[in-house]
Design a binder for these strands. Structure first.
Lengths: 329, 329
DNA sequence: CTGAAAGCGCTTACAG
DNA sequence: CTGAAAGCGCTTACAG
């Protein structure tokens, strides 16, 4: 039905092998025959069948991406970074959502293996032993994105969450806050939970101040608002709040205003992520800028190196964070 | 290296054909031999090679998705809807960003064709003749998502933008606004531009009021803020604003507050999309709820019908919109 | 520099 | 109900 490499070969008066060679630039072809082939391709409007090519060459030029949920802004931006670099290297991506469910993650690794992806970019919460086993079985390169493997056995791209939280806290302390509160994530979360809490506590310990941590299981605006409303109703009001993402930061600002507190005069708010949301609230949110897009881009670049056996200087890449100071501090 | 269907056949003492049959449930197999095959599969940990299967069967069980930019919240949520339904039907998705550039769109269609996708879900701005030709050449089912083909030659899933804008305007008029302003998209945009403007104008015409349209080329918070600041500085202040997305809605609220106008007392603001952003601003944004997730989900379901030659009742699906009234009106 | 041929790992008529 | 064999459209040693 559709035109194959065989048709091109016949049209150009050469063998399929030769067509394949000019297609892939995999060997030197005489200029003259090359032209004949190129002409035949143009004439017939030939496009190689990537599936057949994948079967024969055992490389599909596709990368599997497993994320908790693309519809989250953080993830969406990271995925965009991945896709841009993939395009640059002529790879395509197969995207799947796991909702951070362990069994679904394992499932997806299997499906991607079946699809013969050349590598997997993985973002999740916990890197369990089971997951590790699934990666091992798949026998393809894996890069963890914004996801930490406690044992560091898998290549990964992250920011230093602990240091970032430490810096954010220090900033607040330096600006005179003494009764700070961390609106944190679930304690067992390897990115948004434990490390940020540790950074926060360390900074306070160093300053000889009392830490105060409120864990938030639903890291959304609504979740944050509810938790803070409860907290403000039952405990003394803080003069500084650190939140582990921008949505919670917006929630903090509104919760303060509901409680009759002026931001930043009476309480300063420092958030995380520097998503576009941060500048869409009044007062604009100061926030620790995470290079979200870059995490995706660097992960994908890392993957291409792994696939092509290029040397990599670092196994666990840590991207620098940055602080964007606006009006809320 | 890895275990193939041939290994399973030998282990189970049957032919490859039989293994293939139990794998695909494509023919009746005696219970006894079926069990032998299943056991062999389990024992060897066999997983079929989807690429080989794709080549042999000419169906890859993958759908190509072309969108302007996943990192936009609207698109990300739509993609999530697509992915969920794809999973339900055991399809995977290949995702690509076009940045709404015509040449890139054409390119991507070609690449997806090479990958032998079973169908393409397409979201873009203009459906040009060139694009139509590319779809035709690819000879695979295409569904347009939140994208209109003026000639209605391609299956599509949309909302009725014109009617939605009409309804939104009517709502404002009914609540006493007489000096309304539409913060619209680029005039040539087939979803966010012309139809919404028409709906707005029609509603005003019916009420015998003067329309006032400000086109915004950069449909972001910053873009909206800038345009409105300019507008407010040089023209009389409105008492009602309709914006074509939520970001612009937030911009409108802040622009009003900067101009010393109380929302909703002095000016009412009605936005579009009902993204999560709408409830993260004070006062909370009234907005026309577009079933974004559903556009994705319905598109994908539509695609599965097309692929399996199931009957479809509608060629151009129009999803109902809804109005979520909050505090800004 | 180029060709003939095997092979990638499946599915699918075709027989029986 | 099951098997033998061709074929899907490429790539890749192997020769020359």
């Amino acid at each position: 039905m559709s035109v194959t490499i065989y048709d091109v070969a016949r049209e150009a008066g050469v063998s399929m092998a030769t067509v394949s060679r000019v297609l892939n630039g995999t060997a030197v072809v005489k200029e003259d025959t090359k032209r004949k082939v190129v002409d035949a391709i143009a004439k017939l409007g030939y496009r190689p069948n990537a599936v057949a090519r994948g079967l024969a060459s055992k490389r599909t030029k596709t990368i599997g991406i497993i994320v908790p949920d693309v519809s989250s802004p953080f993830v969406a931006e990271m995925v965009r970074g991945m896709e841009d670099i993939a395009t640059m290297y002529a790879y395509q991506i197969i995207l799947s959502n796991s909702d951070a469910q362990a069994d679904r993650e394992i499932d997806l690794i299997g499906t991607m293996w079946e699809k013969q992806v050349d590598g997997i970019l993985f973002m999740g919460n916990q890197v369990t032993a089971e997951l590790l086993k699934a990666f091992e079985q798949a026998q393809i390169p894996v890069v963890l994105c914004a996801t930490v493997d406690p044992d560091g056995r898998i290549p990964s791209v992250n920011i230093d969450s602990e240091k970032a939280a430490y810096d954010a806290t220090q900033f607040l302390l330096k600006h005179g806050c003494t009764r700070t509160l961390l609106l944190g994530g679930p304690a067992d979360h390897p990115v948004v939970g434990a490390p940020r809490e540790k950074g926060y506590r360390d900074a306070l310990a160093k300053a000889g101040l009392q830490p105060r941590v409120v864990n938030c299981h639903n890291l959304t605006y609504e979740g944050g608002l509810e938790v803070l409303k409860q907290e403000f109703a039952t405990h003394p009001l803080p003069d500084g709040i650190i939140t582990v993402n921008d949505e919670l930061g917006v929630a903090a600002i509104h919760a303060c205003s509901d409680a009759g507190l002026q931001v930043p005069e009476q309480v300063k708010v420092m958030a995380f992520d520097n998503t576009r949301l941060a500048s869409m609230v009044r007062p604009e949110l100061s926030t620790v800028a995470q290079p979200i897009y870059d995490i995706g881009a660097v992960s994908m670049r890392f993957m291409t190196k792994l696939i092509h056996d290029e040397p990599v200087d670092e196994f666990s890449v840590v991207l620098p964070h940055d602080m964007t100071v606006r009006r809320s501090t």
